[in-house]
């Protein structure tokens, strides 16, 4: 088992707008604070898939080249709230024989449940 160097990624609402455009998910709770508050959220939240994409980025950066992830899975346990000034997502991981267990947190709380990546053999 080997620990992977931890990374902290800064994210902003502009990133969420870009992601919404690129992914085809225009749900306004990821862009518009008024809408997010109206449905009972604490504020604008990142798409769960945005956070999962950060986890994939972390693995790509660790491996050093893209396209090596064979499997990737996670539960969306807690929303990543993105205030006007942005926030940070912190990722740690450890690899055992091509299987990478991740820990993805925001403001000290885990935002993905049991995130795991399996690399191609």
């Amino acid at each position: 088992m080997s620990a992977i160097e931890a990374q902290t990624y800064r994210i902003t609402r502009a990133d969420l707008v870009a992601y919404a455009e690129a992914s085809g998910d225009p749900n306004p709770i990821h862009q518009d604070e008024t809408v997010a508050l109206a449905v009972g959220l604490p504020g604008v939240i990142a798409h769960g898939m945005f956070t999962m994409a950060l986890a994939a980025r972390f693995v790509d950066e660790y491996v050093g080249r893209p396209g090596q992830i064979e499997q990737l899975s996670a539960k969306f346990t807690k929303p990543v709230v993105v205030p006007e000034e942005g926030t940070e997502v912190h990722i740690e991981g450890e690899e055992t024989d091509g299987r990478i267990r991740l820990q993805v947190t925001c403001q000290g709380e885990r935002v993905l449940g049991n995130p795991v990546a399996v690399l191609r053999a």
């Binding site: 990624y9 992601y19 690129a22 980025r57 790509d60 893209p66």
Partner: peptide, 12 residues
């Protein structure tokens, strides 16, 4: 489309 998707999360 690939560049836009990757770019949104800072993925190389």
């Amino acid at each position: 489309r690939l560049a836009d998707f990757a770019g949104a999360t800072g993925t190389a």
